[in-house]
Each structure stands twice: as structure tokens, then as C-alpha cells.
């Protein structure tokens, strides 16, 4: 296993770059991070539309959520793969196709996560803010979303972790990400599928595990800050919210 890793680590890390297209784990990370960065604001919009009292906003958002929830990600990828070139008139790269599919998928799921976070807050928070003369948007921005988003960090981390794993589906449309690189190595070595795919599995695991740990750390920091600068909370008194998210993976 170590000789496979020694001979091929650059391919797993950055693909054929600089002699060919960039790939490997870098592309996996790039794909998941960009998908999430684009999908979070869209997810907020989906959440706000879902709880809007205007049907023109509520109906399309609800349709999106139900459609995405009811279809495997692979179908979304195929649809984007064949539809986007037709709609735009340009051929798009596998990376862009995969990114579009992930953004559609994640914004629907994040929308539901964020909606749950908003609806879990006591109604008094909105009322208090509106009673002070704050508009709906100011209330959302300054009072509701900061609390709702913080409370759903564990679910969003879970979603991010599954996004990282789902980038492997890009393999099917020739996105040169981590699984693609591993497959290239396997095809070249021919006789060592077990070490190759073990390395692949471990790479995903390390990436996801590191991420949940980072989120865990950030969450503890925020909790400490809110409990007061002097940290009067007794350690271990509160079960960290993230334990749930970590234990699922």
C-alpha cells in the first residue's frame, strides 16, 4: 500500500497538473467548498421562500425541495449534463456540470435545514424585533438568521460531509476528482485494486473526519463566547450539539 502511495501521491493530490488538467483531492475539495459557498445563500433564500406568506415564492421553492428530495443525485447530474449545454448553447466542463448539480441539490437540502432552524426559534424573537420597529429583512438579518444558522451548524456540517462524498459521482461524467484519480491508478497497476481503493477510502475518511473536528472546535468557541467572556460554564455540562453529526459518520 505504501509503495502505491509513494508512486502516485501527486496524482491523488493534484491530478496530472502541471502536465495536464488539475485533479485529485484538490478538485474534490474545490468542488465541495464552491458548492457549499454558493448553496448556503441560495439555501437561505429557499428557506425564506418556503416560509413566505406569498404563494408565488412558496410554491416554486416547495417544488424544488420535493423534486430534489425525490430524485437521486445521479439523476440531477445527468439532467444538468445534458440540459445545460442545450440551454446555454455552450459545452460545459465536467467540473461546472458537477458544480451545478451539487448547488441545486445542496440548496434544496440546506434550505430545509435552515427552515427548520428558523421555525425552531421562539415566535417571541420575531415579535420582539418587529415591535422595536425592525423591518422583516432587518429582523431576519440581525435577529433570526444569526441564531437559526448557528443552531443548525451540526446539520450543515453533516450536509457538507455528504457533499464531499457525493463529489465522487463526478467520476461518471469524467470530472477529474479523487475517485477518478484512484481509478486511473488502478487501471495502470491492474493488480492492486485493494490498496488503491483502501487509500481512496482513507482519503475521504480523513477529509470528512477533519472537517467534523474543525466544526466541533468552532462550535465550542461560539458557545463559550455566548456563555460570556469569562467562560462561566462548567466543562462537560452541555453536550456539544455536534456529537450527533460526528457520530453519524
Amino acid at each position: 500500500m505504501f509503495d502505491v502511495l509513494r508512486d502516485n501521491w501527486t496524482l491523488l493530490l493534484i491530478g496530472q497538473y502541471p502536465h495536464g488538467p488539475i485533479g485529485g483531492i484538490i478538485v474534490t475539495i474545490l468542488l465541495s467548498v464552491s458548492a457549499l459557498v454558493i448553496a448556503i445563500p441560495l439555501g437561505i433564500l429557499v428557506a425564506l421562500a418556503r416560509i413566505s406568506r406569498y404563494k408565488v415564492l412558496r410554491a416554486p421553492a416547495t417544488a424544488l425541495v420535493y423534486a430534489v428530495r425525490g430524485v437521486p443525485l445521479l439523476m440531477v447530474i445527468f439532467w444538468v449534463y445534458f440540459l445545460v449545454p442545450v440551454l446555454t448553447g455552450y459545452p460545459v466542463t465536467g467540473f461546472v456540470t458537477m458544480l451545478c448539480a451539487l448547488v441545486i441539490y445542496d440548496s434544496a437540502y440546506l434550505g430545509e435545514i435552515i427552515r427548520a432552524g428558523i421555525e425552531a426559534l421562539p415566535k417571541g424573537q420575531t415579535e420582539a424585533s418587529r415591535a422595536l420597529g425592525m423591518s422583516y429583512l432587518k429582523t431576519m438579518r440581525a435577529v433570526i438568521l444569526p441564531q437559526a444558522l448557528y443552531n443548525v451548524v451540526p446539520s450543515m456540517v453533516t450536509q457538507f460531509v455528504s457533499t464531499i462524498k457525493e463529489t465522487s459521482l463526478g467520476y461518471i461524467i469524467n470530472v477529474q476528482e479523487l475517485s477518478f484519480a484512484a481509478d486511473q491508478i488502478n487501471n495502470r497497476l491492474l493488480t492492486k485494486p485493494f490498496p488503491v481503493y483502501l487509500i481512496l477510502a482513507l482519503s475521504y475518511f480523513v477529509l470528512c473526519y477533519a472537517l467534523t473536528q474543525l466544526a466541533h472546535y468552532l462550535e465550542r468557541r461560539v458557545t463559550r463566547k455566548r456563555a460570556g467572556k469569562g467562560n462561566k460554564m462548567r466543562p462537560g455540562k452541555e453536550r456539544p450539539l455536534l456529537e450527533a453529526a460526528v457520530s453519524e459518520h
Partner: peptide, 14 residues
């Protein structure tokens, strides 16, 4: 609304 102060039973601080 900004001209009418309102105090709630449940305080509703942020």
C-alpha cells in the same frame, strides 16, 4: 412601532 415600547411576558431578549 418604534414609537411604542413593548415589554413581553417572556422578555424575548436576543
Amino acid at each position: 412601532r418604534s414609537k411604542v415600547g413593548f415589554v413581553f411576558q417572556q422578555f424575548n431578549l436576543f
